[in-house]
Design a protein around this nucleic acid. Structure first.
Length: 275
DNA sequence: GGAAGATGACAAG
DNA sequence: TTGTCCTCTTCCC
C-alpha cells in the first residue's frame, strides 16, 4: 500500500477523524510503543503532516509520532467503536469520532521538532507538496550515471515515489528504465515530473494508483478490468509476461537494486528517451 | 501447517 | 550487495 500518496491521504484522513485540540487516547496494545504512548495518552491532537513516505502525527507541545509504514505497514482508520485489538497493533489512537490502528510499521517513534526536522532534511522534494522544487531533483538526476529507475526510488532525490509510480511514470514517458540519469533530456524530465505530480495527486484523491490513459482503459480496449490488491489499473507494474496494453509485447521484469522493475521492452527499448 | 512474497529503508561489510 | 526488520495474505502441501 504505502507510497507517498497513501501517506498524504492518511494525514488528511487523520485530520478528518480527529479535531484539533481534541484529547486522544494513545496506547500500544502490542506493547512496543508503550513508554511513548504513556507520555502522549490524553494529549491534544494538533494535526498530521506528510513528507514523502513519512507521516508525522502532531500533538500539543510540538510532540510528534513519526510513522514510516515500510513495506507492509498499515494504518486502519475506523469510525466504529474500538474492539479489542486483533493481531499486532503497535499504536492505537482513539478519539470521539473513531479510532486508528497501526500495524507493522518500519518506524513508530515519539519525536520533537529537532528530530522531525532531521527526517525532513534527509528527503528530496516531494511531488505532493506545493513547495517541491523540481530543479533540485533535476540537478541530481542530470549529473548521475545511475539508471533513472533507481534514481526515482532514491528518497533523498525525490521523496514519496515508490515502485508502482516509478514503473508507471517511466512507461508513460516511453523512457528506458536503465537509462543513466545524465542521458535523460531536460524536457523529458520536466514532462515526467509533471506527470508524476498529477498521478500522485490523483492517487491521494482516490486512495489508489491508476495510471492507464483513457484510450487504453479496459473499456476502450475491450479487455477485462485488472483486479489486483493494489487496487488500480496500471500499464506494467506486476504484469510480468502479460501483454502490454499498448503494443501487446509481454511485459518484462528484472531485479534492480533489490527491487522488482517492470517495463515494456518495445515501448521502452534500450536507450529510449521518450516518445 | 508452512513458505513465499509485498508498493521500504537501514546497517554492516 | 547482503541481511534484517516487521505483518498479513496467498498459495501450496
Amino acid at each position: 500500500m504505502p507510497e507517498g500518496h497513501t501517506i498524504h491521504r492518511l494525514a488528511r484522513d487523520l485530520d478528518a477523524l480527529f479535531a484539533a485540540g481534541e484529547r486522544i487516547a494513545v496506547s500500544s496494545p502490542q506493547g512496543r510503543f508503550d513508554a511513548s504512548a504513556a507520555l502522549l495518552d490524553g494529549a491534544a491532537y494538533a494535526g498530521s503532516d506528510a513528507y514523502g513516505k513519512h507521516l508525522f502525527i502532531g500533538f500539543a507541545d510540538d510532540r510528534w509520532i513519526h510513522v514510516h509504514l515500510g513495506l507492509y505497514g498499515g494504518f486502519a482508520l475506523l469510525a466504529a467503536v474500538p474492539e479489542p485489538p486483533r493481531g499486532a497493533v503497535r499504536l492505537r489512537l482513539v478519539g470521539k469520532a473513531g479510532h486508528a490502528d497501526l500495524r507493522g510499521p518500519n518506524a513508530c517513534e515519539l519525536v520533537g521538532p529537532a528530530e522531525r526536522g532531521q527526517v525532513i532534511a534527509r528527503l528530496g522534494p516531494d511531488p505532493l507538496r506545493d513547495d517541491a522544487d523540481p530543479d533540485r531533483v533535476w540537478t541530481r538526476v542530470s549529473r548521475s550515471t545511475v539508471p533513472i529507475a533507481a534514481l526515482l526510488l532514491a528518497q533523498d532525490i525525490a521523496a514519496g515515489v515508490g515502485n508502482v509510480y516509478r514503473a508507471e511514470v517511466l512507461f508513460r514517458a516511453g523512457v528506458d528504465p536503465l537509462l543513466p540519469g545524465r542521458l535523460l533530456p531536460h524536457e523529458v524530465w520536466q514532462a515526467m515530473w509533471h506527470d508524476l505530480c498529477a498521478l500522485m495527486r490523483e492517487g491521494v484523491t482516490h486512495n489508489r494508483i491508476d495510471t492507464v490513459r483513457e484510450e487504453h482503459t479496459p473499456e476502450a480496449m475491450g479487455r477485462p478490468p485488472r483486479v489486483d490488491d493494489h487496487g488500480g489499473e496500471v500499464y506494467v507494474y506486476r504484469r510480468t509476461g502479460q501483454p502490454c496494453h499498448v503494443c501487446g509485447t509481454p511485459v518484462a521484469t528484472q531485479v534492480l537494486r533489490a527491487r522488482n522493475l517492470f517495463w515494456c521492452p518495445r515501448c521502452q527499448p534500450p536507450g529510449a528517451v521518450g516518445a
